[in-house]
C-alpha cells in the first residue's frame, strides 16, 4: 500500500484514537477545575473553615502579594538552585563511586555491606548532624539533597555497568583494550540510559532533601515558607508554597526528560 492512501479501517481507527485522546485531556482539565471549584465553594459556604483549609481565591491573593513584595522569586530561586546543585552533584559523585566499584572488585566486595546499610538508612535522620557540622545555611541543605540521592545513584549506576553485554566488552578486549578504554568506550556510553534514569529519580529525591533541609535550617526557600506559614497559622501561605513547589517540581522533571532525549540523541 502506498504511503498516502489510508484504508477506511485505518482512518476510523485513527479517528477513534484521536477522540479518546481528546477525552482524556478534557477529563484532566475538568478534574482540576472541579477540585478548584469545589474547594472554593466549600470554603465560601463555610462547609469547611478557610482558616484551616485556605481556598483558591486566597491562594491567588497570596501569590499576588508575594509577587508584589518581590520575595516570591527569591524563595523559589533559592530552592530550585539548591535542588539542581544537589541532584547534579549526587549524580556526578554517585557515578564516580560506581566507576571505582566497577574498577575494583575488591573494593566493591569490601563496601557492599556498607552500601546496603547506608541505602536502608533514612538519610533525613542525618539532618541535625549535617547542620551542626556545616552550619545553618545552604551548604547543609545541598549536602542533605546530595546524600539522599548518592547511594541510590551508586547502586543504580553500578548495576547498570554490570549489565553491559559482556560480549561487547570481550570484543573490545580482543582488540587489546585497556580497562580505561573499556570504561570510556563501552561501559560509560552503554550506561548513559541508566545514568539518565538515575538523574530522573534524583530530581525527586533532591526535592525531598532540599525541603527537609529548609525545614531544619529555616532561613529561606519554599521549605522555609511552608514551615513558617505553619508556625504562624497562615495556611494560605502554606498552600500557596506547596502549589508553587508542585509546579516547580513538575517543570524540573520535564526539563530532565527533555535533557534525556537530547543526550540520547547526541551520545
Amino acid at each position: 500500500m502506498s504511503d498516502n492512501s489510508i484504508s477506511p479501517e485505518q482512518a476510523s481507527y485513527l479517528r477513534a484514537r484521536k477522540r479518546y485522546r481528546l477525552k482524556v485531556i478534557i477529563s484532566r482539565i475538568l478534574l482540576l477545575v472541579g477540585i478548584v471549584v469545589l474547594w472554593e465553594a466549600a470554603a465560601e459556604l463555610r462547609l469547611v473553615d478557610p482558616f484551616i483549609t485556605s481556598q483558591p481565591s486566597r491562594v491567588v491573593r497570596t501569590l499576588l502579594m508575594l509577587h508584589q513584595q518581590g520575595v516570591l522569586y527569591r524563595h523559589v530561586g533559592i530552592t530550585v538552585f539548591e535542588t539542581v546543585v544537589g541532584f547534579t552533584l549526587g549524580t556526578i559523585a554517585g557515578t564516580g563511586v560506581a566507576v571505582l566499584l566497577w574498577w575494583s572488585d575488591f573494593l566493591s566486595d569490601v563496601l557492599d555491606p556498607y552500601l546496603v546499610v547506608l541505602n536502608s538508612l533514612p538519610k533525613i535522620a542525618l539532618g541535625p548532624i549535617i547542620i551542626v557540622w556545616m552550619g545553618q545555611g545552604m551548604p547543609a541543605i545541598i549536602t542533605m539533597a546530595l546524600l539522599i540521592s548518592l547511594v541510590v545513584t551508586i547502586l543504580g549506576v553500578y548495576s547498570g555497568f554490570s549489565q553491559v553485554d559482556s560480549e561487547k566488552v570481550k570484543m573490545l578486549r580482543t582488540f587489546g583494550a585497556t580497562r580505561g578504554q573499556v570504561l570510556r568506550m563501552v561501559i560509560l556510553p552503554a550506561s548513559v540510559p541508566t545514568i539518565v534514569s538515575a538523574l530522573k529519580i534524583n530530581v525527586g529525591l533532591s526535592w525531598v532533601g532540599v525541603i527537609v533541609g529548609e525545614f531544619l535550617v529555616s532561613r529561606a526557600g519554599l521549605g522555609y515558607l511552608i514551615v513558617y506559614g505553619g508556625q504562624v497559622f497562615r495556611l494560605d501561605l502554606v498552600m500557596t508554597s506547596v502549589i508553587i513547589l508542585a509546579v516547580a517540581a513538575a517543570v524540573m522533571y520535564q526539563a530532565v526528560v527533555w535533557l534525556e532525549r537530547l543526550i540520547l540523541r547526541f551520545r
Binding site: 570484543m171 580482543t174 563501552v186 556510553p189 552503554a190 551520545r267
Partner: peptide
C-alpha cells in the same frame, strides 16, 4: 587475531 563475537555487537551510539 580478530574476533567476531556472537551477534554483531555494534555500538548503537
Amino acid at each position: 587475531v580478530g574476533y567476531m563475537p556472537q551477534s554483531d555487537q555494534l555500538f548503537e551510539w
